[in-house]
Amino acid sequence: MIMSIFSLTLFLISLILMIISTILSKKTTLDREKSSPFECGFDAISSSRIPFSLRFFLIAVIFLIFDVEIALVMPIMSTFFLSNTKIWMTTSFLIMIILIWGLYHEWNMNSLDWKLF
């Protein structure tokens, strides 16, 4: 009973805060130039073509991939006592081989070489 009242109170407080933030964030003045779509021939207010490093993007993607892989590897140790030892060993060995193979491939393609940046 107390937990449901507590949950309902938290829900109502968060709902009220979201409604207040939505009301306060509305812009009251509308500029015709800023709300019109950009078409060819108009001068942009600022440069929309900011140079972006493709190598930085690749490093970010590699980081995200290995971050997700670490999130998949973390629960392996907690499932050791809940599963069959032989199946657990083969599965964890296969996952680690795939991770090491991916790291070797990135290293072989010089994606991890910071001197190239």
Results as ranks from 00 to 15, higher is better:
20 I>R: 08
87 I>R: 10
82 L>T: 09
110 N>F: 13
35 S>I: 11
55 R>N: 01
88 W>C: 07
75 P>G: 01
102 G>N: 15
65 I>W: 07
12 L>Y: 12
76 I>P: 12
21 S>W: 07
34 K>D: 07
6 F>R: 15
99 L>I: 08
34 K>C: 11
12 L>I: 15
10 L>S: 06
55 R>P: 00
62 I>L: 08
60 A>F: 11
32 R>C: 03
91 T>Q: 12
90 T>S: 11
30 L>V: 15
86 K>G: 09
18 M>C: 15
96 M>F: 10
67 D>V: 09
52 F>I: 14
114 W>D: 02
98 I>Y: 03
106 E>C: 15
57 F>M: 01
7 S>L: 06
55 R>M: 05
14 S>W: 04
114 W>V: 03
81 F>L: 01
25 S>E: 05
37 P>S: 09
92 S>L: 06
15 L>P: 01
1 M>R: 02
68 V>P: 12
27 K>L: 02
108 N>Y: 14
116 L>V: 06
10 L>G: 15
60 A>S: 08
67 D>E: 03
112 L>A: 10
47 S>E: 03
30 L>N: 01
69 E>Y: 14
25 S>C: 00
42 F>P: 00
109 M>S: 08
90 T>N: 14
51 P>I: 02
58 L>V: 09
68 V>W: 15
13 I>D: 01
85 T>G: 05
65 I>T: 09
55 R>S: 07
68 V>I: 15
101 W>A: 10
22 T>C: 13
86 K>F: 08
95 I>H: 11
15 L>H: 04
64 L>V: 04
59 I>G: 01
89 M>D: 08
113 D>Y: 11
25 S>Q: 13
88 W>M: 14
80 F>Y: 12
111 S>N: 14
46 S>L: 03
52 F>W: 01
89 M>Q: 14
